[in-house]
C-alpha cells in the first residue's frame, strides 16, 4: 500500500486542499466502516462479553442473576451429559479425520487421475449431498435408518434377513453414534472431495508429465507426488473438519435428539438443552465458552501450521 501513499503525495493541489480532503476522506471511511463495525459490536462482541459474564452467574433469564464464579464450569465437568457430549465431539472429530479425509482423498485422487467421460461429471453429484440443508439430510437419514419402516430394515424384511432387521440403528446406544456419523460422511465428504481435487489439479503440469515419463503407477504418483504436494491442503481440511466437529448440532439433534440417553449428545445439544429447554442460562453460557475454547485451540494449531508453511 506504499504505492497508494506515494500517489497521494504527488497529487496536484495537495497542499491547498489538504485539510478539506482529509476531512472528506475521514467522513467517507467512517461512513463505510460503520455498518460492519456496528453489526459486529451489537450482534457479536456484546454477546461474547455477555456469554463470559453469564457463564459466571446462575440465571434463568427471568429472576435475579447471582454471581457464582466458576461454579458452572466445575459442575459441568461433574455432569454426565456434558462429559458425554464432550467425549462425543472429540470422538466425532477423531473419526472424521481418520475416515472422512482419507476416503475423500481417495475419491478426489481417483477423479483427477482416472478422468474420463464417465468420471468427469461425478464430482457434481458428490457435492450435491453437501449442498442439502442439514434438516433435509437428517430427514433422509431417518428415511434410511428408522426402525421397521426405514429403507434398511424394510429391505432386510423383504429378504428375510432377521439379523439385519432386528438392528435398531438409531435406538441402540452403541450404534446411534455411528448411524449419524454415516449420514454425516454421506453429507460432508463432497466438500472435502472438491477442495482436495482442486488442490490436486493445481499440481504443475510438468511434474505430472515427468511422473508419467518415469512410468509412475497411480500408487507411486499418489505416494511420492500428490500427498507431499497437497499435504498443506490435507492439513487445512483436517483442521476445518475438527473445528466443525466441535460445533456439531443439527444432525444428532434432528435424528436422535442426543439420545438414547446421552449416547449421541454433543456440546451443541447440551448447550441448547440447558439454555432453551431447562432455562439454565449460566450453564448454557459456560458450555458456549467451552465450545469457543476448543475451536480456538484448533484454530491456533491451524495458524501455527500456516506460519510454518510460509517459513518454508
Amino acid at each position: 500500500m506504499h504505492k497508494n501513499a506515494k500517489t497521494f503525495a504527488i497529487m496536484p493541489g495537495k497542499n491547498r486542499s489538504k485539510k478539506k480532503r482529509d476531512w472528506n476522506e475521514l467522513i467517507f471511511k467512517t461512513l463505510l466502516l460503520t455498518p460492519a463495525v456496528l453489526f459486529l459490536v451489537v450482534f457479536m462482541y456484546y454477546p461474547i462479553e455477555e456469554t463470559f459474564r453469564l457463564s459466571m452467574t446462575r440465571s434463568t433469564g427471568l429472576g435475579p442473576t447471582v454471581f457464582v464464579g466458576f461454579q458452572n464450569y466445575v459442575r459441568l465437568f461433574q455432569n454426565e451429559e456434558f462429559l458425554m457430549g464432550l467425549k462425543n465431539v472429540l470422538r466425532w472429530a477423531f473419526w472424521s479425520v481418520v475416515i472422512q479425509i482419507p476416503f475423500s482423498f481417495f475419491i478426489a485422487f481417483s477423479l483427477s487421475v482416472f478422468k474420463n467421460r464417465i468420471t468427469k461429471p461425478l464430482r457434481v453429484i458428490y457435492y450435491l449431498a453437501n449442498v442439502l440443508p442439514s434438516a433435509i439430510t437428517a430427514m433422509l437419514g431417518r428415511f434410511v435408518f428408522a426402525p421397521r419402516h426405514g429403507v434398511i430394515p424394510s429391505l432386510a424384511n423383504k429378504f428375510n434377513w432377521q439379523w439385519l432387521a432386528r438392528i435398531d440403528f438409531l435406538g441402540d446406544p452403541k450404534l446411534a453414534f455411528w448411524s449419524i456419523f454415516a449420514v454425516a460422511t454421506w453429507a460432508y465428504c463432497g466438500f472435502y472431495v472438491i477442495y482436495l481435487m482442486a488442490n490436486i489439479e493445481q499440481i504443475p503440469k510438468d511434474i505430472r508429465e515427468s511422473a508419467q515419463l518415469d512410468g509412475a503407477t497411480p500408487w507411486q504418483y499418489a505416494r511420492y507426488i500428490v500427498i507431499p504436494m497437497t499435504s498443506y491442503a490435507i492439513r487445512i481440511v483436517s483442521i476445518l473438519c475438527i473445528v466443525g466437529s466441535m460445533k456439531i448440532f443439527d444432525l444428532p439433534w434432528l435424528m436422535t435428539t442426543g439420545g438414547p440417553g446421552y449416547a449421541t449428545s454433543t456440546l451443541g445439544i447440551v448447550l441448547y438443552k440447558s439454555g432453551f429447554v431447562n432455562w439454565q442460562y449460566g450453564r448454557a453460557a459456560a458450555v458456549g465458552v467451552v465450545i469457543f475454547l476448543l475451536s480456538l485451540f484448533f484454530t491456533i494449531i491451524q495458524f501455527s501450521l500456516q506460519r510454518k508453511e510460509s517459513d518454508l
Partner: peptide, 13 residues
Amino acid sequence: VPVQMVLIPLYQL
C-alpha cells in the same frame, strides 16, 4: 467465533 457460543445472549438481545 462459533455461533453456538453466543446463542443465549443473542436470544436475550
